[in-house]
Nucleic acid binder design. Structure first.
Length: 836
DNA sequence: CTTAGCGGCCTTTTT
DNA sequence: GGCCGCTAAG
């Protein structure tokens, strides 16, 4: 096997570095690596790029021989270590750029790493084809060796949407009720299996039984078979196929093991089992051929960087275990801890560190900083009456900072769930405040974009039935369900793609003349476009396709409000394609990189989820929505139990550690969830913050007076719980809803509560809030009483804490529709109103 | 075959 | 509150 990219030589002299062994050619496969590295290290003065590293960082960079685990806390210069390490390897001439295997978890991280390496080694980074996400590297393996796993190298990568549609077809074909057994659910089961590297034959019997009365395994197998005939892969396959390929073809694996002289893994705590298996395969050293069996010589040069405290992707199969187990997986591993933080103030670190210390099973790191500025603010906790006021107050705070010349680019709002964003967006629009949503509704998930891409996909890959099925009748061509079904049946009978079957079908008289004409027209068009594929530039062809197919016209004729913006998006799509070599190259890019660059030059507040904030930092960070049920999220608790809670806590830790100087946490006492208003209580995480580094922000009451609400007897300035000062909740605890919830609380919830050691004690010690808080666990209970008929009747006069007095207009289970005197008609849970 | 209107559904995080 | 998909009517 040959690797063409290995021919690209690496320029020995690095810009801005002293010429260390610039004559060193990459070594032959048979080792001697350690010795030469040592020699190189000893022989020359420290290159520039090593200066300015602290001792631990330098150690991590220079320990290039054998396995290394770098436990890098938030803001300790993790990326710097990785990129410098790569530069170091290149500079010592220990490998060609193409012989370095470097994986990151997200596209963003890969991009950033590329940029930063480029700063160190210049254009050489272009010769690093194996720097990317696991998935993009998986694709690279597969394109080269597709035939080894039964694919052709022009296979399509399906996204979640395609997958769900395909599964739905299969479920229906099996005669299974797709209402009872939703395709979406099965798709996520498959995803889970593939994250573990399991094929249909490998899945546990119980898993198979768990779907459609035991048809799980058969469906999974049918799905895989279908992918095969479609010449397609889903996301999981991008990892599983390479694993299978390497296992079945040791010769191929061996070539890659030889090739990759250095392996680097970013965010190791986020790797799932499949990714781990792939790494293990690549990290095995081929047996030494010169008889040298010295262990260090054969130990893989693998360097994993991660932080167990920032593992937040357990829900999608990440195994923190991978990082906790590293030294057993790679015997003799060197472990380097980076604990010196360069990002955050002492208060922020103190708050974050204390919070995360509530987790068990950590490798344990304590971040420290030399930075001690008496002017640094403590972490501030604010209370608001409801989410609207929360958004208003945050907006106000932002404007104040703006007046103090803090740039909007230096501020971010990090939410737990994306639905929280809307309220902030609305507020910012009315304020005229620039904001940018990161990772929000994705460009490539929009309908018009997906339609357009479906056209492109069929042109590039005629066997892509899913894409074809999506657009045969878009715009409307009179090819309705009946015609498509007929076409589909033909395709299956002849075992050929639908497009090919269509060509046959138009030669018969099975279709009505009208449909036949349309179908024949489309197939001819596709044939024509395919002919242009090699000659016409991608973006021109794309434009031609959208024009000739009538797709653009369809939106031009559409009078709905969002039609113009859809046309705008299509334009942008064409624009983007022009930056690519070909339509094919573009499709590949999109399949892997679902996000699109946001214009960074605008000064704007960033709005994103906590998950997408990992790896970023901001001067000022706002963390709204710290309420039980939302954060920690109820579902994480329900499904993940204790480990779910710990993951939520890590998420909080990630949020806090994004902040450099200022961090504002908010919680509200009323939030609308699923269109219903619910009372909420402060997150337990608030109580896990250390007093020394946190202060409860005083409010001036200008935001609609929650502060005046039920300010309690207990609430002296420093009495009881620290959050008593945010006493609106005392009012809530006395609301009929809580009283009822308390009565309904099941023993299960109480036990649940009891398991949270320390916490309950703290609450109880504070008296009143203890038992009340327990009922808050009853928030769930309040929700689960849906089938209990409401004790109210239509016409009753009731009082609601947020909306005041009103009359019940309608009752649906425990959901009341109420005409409020002042607030208008609202839907609320009956637990939150009381008769007047 | 298409469209409009209605009902039932969900609603964490993402490569 | 919004989306999807179904149904009934054109």
């Amino acid at each position: 096997m040959s690797f063409p990219e290995d021919d690209i030589p690496f320029p020995g002299d690095l810009p801005g570095t002293s010429p260390v062994r610039s004559d060193a050619a990459p070594l032959a496969a048979s080792g001697g690596l350690a010795a030469r590295a040592m020699a190189a290290r000893g022989a020359a003065a420290q290159p520039d790029y090593l200066r300015g590293l602290n001792p631990e960082q330098a150690e991590a960079v220079q320990a290039i021989d054998g396995p290394v685990l770098v436990l890098a806390g938030a803001g300790t210069g993790k990326t710097r270590v990785l990129t410098t390490r790569i530069a170091h390897i290149l500079n010592l001439g220990l490998a060609y750029p193409s012989q370095i295997f470097a994986v990151t978890f997200t596209n963003k991280a890969a991009r950033e790493m590329k940029e930063r390496i480029a700063l160190l080694v210049g254009g050489a980074v272009e010769g690093m084809p194996w720097l990317g996400t696991f998935h993009s590297i998986g694709v690279k393996f597969l394109r080269r060796h597709a035939e080894l796993v039964g694919l052709r190298s022009d296979f399509t990568i399906l996204d979640t949407d395609d997958v769900v549609r395909l599964i739905k077809q299969l479920i229906q074909a099996e005669g299974i009720d797709d209402k009872r057994w939703p395709a979406r659910q099965f798709a996520s089961m498959i995803d889970g299996w593939k994250n573990k590297g399991l094929a249909p034959a490998d899945i546990p019997e119980g898993d198979s039984r768990a779907f459609a009365n035991g048809k799980g395994r058969a469906l999974f197998a049918a799905y895989q078979a279908r992918l095969q005939t479609l010449n397609a892969c889903d996301f999981g396959d991008l990892l599983c196929h390479p694993i299978r390929m390497f296992r079945n073809h040791p010769d191929v694996l061996k070539e890659y093991q030889r090739k990759f002289r250095f392996l680097l893994v970013d965010e190791y705590q986020d790797t799932n089992t499949a990714q781990y298996m792939l790494l293990r395969l690549l990290a095995q050293r081929p047996a030494a051929e010169d008889g040298d069996t010295g262990r260090r010589e054969n130990a893989p040069n693998i360097c994993c960087v991660g932080d167990d405290d920032q593992s937040i992707y357990g829900w999608r199969g990440a195994e923190v275990e991978n990082i906790l187990r590293f030294d057993r997986d790679f015997p003799g591993a060197k472990v380097v801890r980076l604990e010196r933080n360069y990002r955050s103030s002492e208060h922020i670190l103190g708050a974050a560190g204390h919070l995360i210390s509530h987790n068990e099973g950590r490798l344990g790191k304590t971040l420290f900083t030399d930075r001690r500025d008496p002017d640094d603010d403590r972490v501030q906790v604010h209370a608001a009456w409801d989410s609207e006021e929360e958004a208003r107050a945050v907006g106000e705070e932002i404007e104040q900072l703006q007046r103090r010349d803090v740039r909007l680019n230096d501020m971010a709002i990090l939410v737990r769930a994306s639905f929280q964003m809307r309220e902030f967006e609305e507020r910012f629009v009315t304020l005229g405040l620039n904001y940018r949503v990161i990772g929000g509704p994705r460009f490539y998930e929009r309908q018009e974009i997906r339609d357009a891409m479906a056209y492109f996909r069929v042109v590039c890959q005629p066997a892509d039935d899913l894409a074809f099925g999506r657009i045969v009748n878009v715009p409307k061509r009179g090819l309705g369900e009946a015609s498509v079904r007929l076409l589909h049946d033909h395709a299956r009978a002849d075992d050929k793609p639908m497009l090919a079957a269509a060509q046959d079908l138009v030669g018969t008289d099975e279709l009505k003349p009208r449909a036949r004409k349309s179908l024949s027209d489309v197939t001819e068009q596709f044939a024509r476009w395919q002919g242009l594929l090699e000659t016409m530039p991608g973006h021109e062809l794309a434009e031609v396709i959208l024009e000739e197919s009538g797709y653009t016209e369809m939106w031009q004729n559409d009078r709905s409000a969002d039609a113009p913006s859809r046309l705008e998006n299509l334009k942008e799509l064409i624009e983007t394609i022009s930056g690519f070599e070909s339509l094919r190259a573009f499709l590949e890019h999109v399949a892997l990189v679902m996000d699109v660059d946001t214009n960074a030059d605008m000064d704007a507040v960033s709005l994103m989820t906590l998950h997408s904030a990992k790896g970023l930092e901001f001067d000022t960070v706002f963390l709204p929505g710290w309420e039980e049920g939302l954060f920690p999220h109820q579902r994480a608790l329900d499904e993940g139990g204790r480990s779910g809670l710990e993951e939520e806590r890590r998420l909080a830790y990630v949020g806090l550690t994004r902040a450099k100087r200022r961090c504002h946490i908010w919680f509200v006492s009323n939030r609308r969830i699923h269109g219903l208003w619910q009372s909420t209580i402060p997150s337990r995480f608030l109580d896990e913050l250390p007093e020394d580094h946190v202060e409860v922000a005083e409010t001036d009451g200008q935001y609609g007076g929650y502060a005046s609400y039920g300010r309690g007897q207990s609430g002296g300035p420093y009495g009881a719980s620290r959050f008593d000062r945010a006493e609106p909740f005392a009012g809530n605890y006395q609301s009929p809803g809580w009283r009822r919830a308390q009565q309904n609380a099941t023993s299960a919830t109480r036990e649940n509560w009891g398991t949270r050691s320390g916490h309950a004690v703290e609450r109880v010690a504070y008296g009143e809030s203890g038992p009340r808080a327990r009922t808050i666990e009853g928030e769930l209970v309040a929700r689960s009483t849906t089938d209990v008929p409401s004790s109210f009747s239509v016409g009753d006069r009731v009082f609601h804490l947020k909306f005041g007095n009103g009359n019940i207009a309608a009752i649906d289970g425990n959901k009341l529709t109420i005409d409020f005197d002042k607030a208008g008609q609202k839907r609320v849970l009956d637990g939150f109103v009381e008769p007047v």
